[in-house]
Write a protein that binds this DNA or RNA. Structure first.
Length: 442
RNA sequence: GCGGGGAUGGCCCAGUGGUACGGCGGCAGCCUGCUAAGCUGUUUCUCUAUGAGAGCGAGGGUUCGAAUCCCUCUCCCCGCGCCA
């Protein structure tokens, strides 16, 4: 959540941020109305309580000296009733105000392009040498900076669904029968390839100073509500029936919640954590999108980068996390572009977000494979994670970024590394030490 | 799942109905050539702040008054059961 003190003292920052997000500032107006009512009510309640405490102390004296206190007791009982009534009103105002505060989005960073729609995201850079079908050259050039390196081909790459089915590496039909749409069975060498991706990513981040963590795959309501904006995400999260448990949609959730309500030493920061977990998503709003194959699924594995740091370092860390993910893509030989997500498409938590979009030659498109966000102090405040400093306890900043989401990267590899002559898939060199083979054939 | 024990400020810990004791650590100041020691103050949250309110795992209840008594729940420790 946002800093309520900052909101009171610099309301213009928040109205400006709302405008950048193309949101009505209704929640801000509502907050100020409720806050005013709350303060008045609080003052009244505190005055009554003060009075009550004073009388209680007098009663204590009377009781100690064995005198009669029944008149005073009657007064206090009546006071108690007034207090109870006011407190009920106060807590209902407080509850609504807190809900309103939680709906106020993070401040948008000044470097974020102000506009609506993914098509207006700013292209930051393009890296690699994409193989582009001749029909897609126009789109490719429009989607990348001038002078970007690419290779034109006349042969359209086969879709991952067709190729993987043909090679006996996935079974979508039976997954549909057993579990439903957007589930999959991976088979044979594709399983090994996925494990190789995960092992490689874990080693990659370990070498860059990350502590590898396998977290709980479910969280309780309090943790989930603190680590993410549950109102927005409840349609994306699976709830366990009859239990206070939600399946995680990313390791970001349990890693963030890991330090909930803790006070860290300044010397412990920054903390670089690499979470490895399955991710469960309802994809409720994605009807009709990417319905075939394993590009958009209800369950996938992901290695996630997460950083807890001091506020003055978080913008450097956003670049570091992005670099880690970029280097990983590059090392696999996947061409990609980096986009700076525009203000209208940011989540409530984000101050700024970069996506890495890999080149998918069969689709003839750049598609999201990585998302790197700086949530500044927004998530840290909801989680109540602080660190000791000379100026008192301060809220940590949190950042997260995909390192690799396996299913999307398996699709990228399948589309980019398929062999036109023999219909097989070659394995990116960096992964061969992990797979133990360098080719998948029929 | 069953039985027993526990949860108090950043940490440790006292507290059997009268408004949370003491220690450690941190911070500030004093004192000594420096350092250490010592001494003094301070230490959580909220508010319209020379003041007041809240806070003893969470939520209810009894009471003028609850860390303390009662009920429900959570987590941790010990033992039993079950178990990859």
């Amino acid at each position: 959540m946002i800093d309520v003190k900052l909101l009171r003292e610099h309301k213009e920052l928040f109205y400006d941020s709302c405008r950048k997000r193309f949101m009505e500032p209704a929640s801000l107006d509502r907050f100020f109305a409720l806050d005013e009512a709350w303060r008045q009510k609080l003052k009244a309640v505190n005055d009554l309580k003060h009075h009550k405490n004073e009388i209680s102390i007098r009663i204590a004296d009377l009781v100690k000296s064995r005198s009669d206190a029944s008149d005073l007791k009657k007064d206090v009982r009546e006071l108690g009733e007034s207090i109870e009534k006011l407190e009920t009103e106060l807590s209902s105002i407080d509850k609504e105000r807190n809900e309103v505060v939680r709906s106020i989005p993070n401040l948008v960073h000044e470097s974020v392009p102000v506009c609506k729609g993914d098509e207006n995201n700013a292209v930051v850079r393009y890296i690699g040498n994409a193989v582009v079908h001749e029909d897609d050259v126009k789109y490719f050039k429009e989607s990348t900076p001038d002078g970007s390196l690419f290779t034109i081909t006349k042969n359209r790459a086969v879709s991952h669904v067709d190729l993987l089915e043909k090679l006996g590496l996935i079974d979508m039909a039976r997954a549909g029968k057993a579990a439903g749409a957007r589930f999959y069975y991976l088979k044979n060498r594709l399983v090994k390839l996925e494990m190789a991706l995960m092992n490689y990513a874990v080693d990659f981040l370990s070498e860059r100073g990350f502590t590898v963590v396998e977290p709980p795959f479910m969280l309780n309501y309090a943790s989930m509500n603190a680590v993410t904006d549950l109102e927005t995400f409840k349609d994306a999260l699976y709830k366990i029936e009859g239990e206070d448990l939600y399946l995680i949609a990313t390791a970001e959730h349990p890693i963030g919640a890991m330090l909930k309500d803790e006070i860290l030493e300044e010397s412990e920061l920054p903390l670089r954590l690499a979470g490895i977990s399955p991710c469960f998503r309802k994809e409720a709003g994605a009807h009709g999108k990417d319905t075939k194959g394993i590009f958009r699924v209800h369950q996938f594995n992901k290695i996630e980068q997460f950083v807890f740091c001091k506020p003055e370092h978080s913008w450097d860390f956003l670049e570091e996390l992005l670099k880690n993910a970029e280097d990983f893509c590059s090392s696999l030989g996947i061409a990609y572009r980096v986009v700076n997500i525009c203000s209208g498409e940011l989540s409530v938590l984000n101050a700024k977000k970069y996506d890495i979009e890999a080149w998918f030659p069969a689709q003839g498109k750049f598609r999201e494979v990585v998302s790197a966000s700086n949530n500044t102090d927004y998530q840290g405040r909801s989680l109540n994670i602080r660190y000791r400093s000379k100026n008192g306890n301060q809220i940590v900043n949190t950042l997260n970024s995909t390192e690799v989401a396996t299913t999307r990267m398996l699709v990228a590899i399948t589309e980019n590394f398929q062999q036109q002559d023999n219909g097989g898939i070659s394995i990116p060199k960096a992964l061969v030490p992990y797979t133990g083979f360098d080719f998948i054939s029929s």
